[in-house]
């Protein structure tokens, strides 16, 4: 669609309409200022939406202010301003005349949707078959996937176990996580290829869920329950005591790779608060003073074999 904006001169030679090209934060602010001054503003943007780079930033330099918090009120004001007409998904084709009296020809690309009815729910983007086609040139550029023969076998077996599932990615990651106790990078790359989904999506899932880790975990994962009941009964003190004893921060792994320390949202054993688990063993009514004894069990290999069943300490 080609839209023609033609502006006619008035008596003093200048008239009240402006065209702003580019709806980044600069263009948006300029449009708002001009519109407030009473000019009719045509805000033209090449992308399907306004906001530009700032909408993708977390913080702005140098004040570390939240980018979206600054930008989003401006976006809303722009959209609602009676003097501003937003023309997105469009390019400037031709410009004639001079400031105050010009004719612009704008090519507007089709959207294939009814803008009036769209609620912006995003379902179409999620389901778009074109976007979801995997492209693997990047992977090759970043380095080939290196899998040992054993890894190759393991992953093939895991993938085969979920062949019939319509959305296997989470189950596959869970199996990898159970096998390796974390998600090794090369295996994730392989998984993306095998499931024919972009690596970025695998990564977004791997980093979203609490139970996945991208770095190797220790032999024993100590999880401290951070549920409400555990909190009021001193769960946080337990976590800190463990941090001191293991000399690692929550989320870390000891140098000898024996222990990893993690927080868990709630283990659902609130009646026994505060609760910790070491791998599969669950300990209830834990006290700080008892922690060294619990850890000791796992430091000595021979003892561990006998005490795989947890108990209230």
């Amino acid at each position: 669609m080609t839209q023609e904006i033609s502006i006619k001169k008035n008596s003093n030679g200048k008239i009240g309409a402006v065209m702003v090209l580019g709806a980044g934060v600069a263009g948006i602010q300029a449009s708002l200022d001009l519109a407030d001054m009473g000019y009719k503003v045509y805000l033209v943007e090449n992308k399907p939406s306004i906001g530009g780079a700032m909408a993708q930033l977390d913080k702005t330099f140098p004040t570390n202010d939240c980018a979206m918090c600054l930008l989003s009120p401006k976006l809303v004001d722009t959209a609602r301003h009676p003097n501003i007409e937003i023309i997105t998904n469009a390019d400037l084709h031709k410009l004639d005349g001079e400031a105050g009296n010009f004719t612009a020809i704008i090519d507007k690309r089709p959207r294939y949707i009814d803008e009036e009815k769209c609620t912006g729910c995003g379902t179409c983007t999620n389901n778009c078959p074109v976007r979801n086609i995997a492209h693997f040139e990047d992977v090759d550029e970043l380095g080939k996937v290196h899998l040992s023969q054993e890894d190759q076998q393991v992953i093939e077996q895991i993938l085969a176990g979920h062949e019939s599932e319509r959305a296997a990615v989470i189950s596959v990651l869970q199996d990898i996580n159970a096998r390796y106790r974390y998600l090794p990078e090369d295996i994730l790359r392989h998984t993306a290829k095998a499931l024919d989904i972009p690596l970025s999506r695998v990564y977004s899932i791997a980093t979203f869920y609490n139970s996945f880790s991208l770095v190797p975990r220790g032999k024993y994962v100590v999880r401290v329950c951070m549920g409400t009941a555990c909190h009021v009964k001193g769960g946080y003190q337990i976590l800190q005591a463990l941090e001191r004893m293991l000399k690692i921060a929550s989320g870390g792994t000891t140098e000898d790779n024996l222990f990893s320390l993690e927080e868990v949202r709630c283990l659902g054993c609130c009646g026994l608060a505060p609760v910790i688990t070491v791998n599969e063993d669950l300990y209830g009514s834990v006290k700080q003073a008892k922690l060294p004894k619990i850890l000791e069990r796992y430091q000595d290999e021979s003892v561990v074999a006998e005490s795989t069943v947890g108990g209230t300490e």
Binding site: C121, G122, I170, I197, R201, F208
Partner: peptide, 11 residues
Amino acid sequence: SLQGQTPEPRI
């Protein structure tokens, strides 16, 4: 999440 996406709520 069941559909294998990042579990963000939708409108």
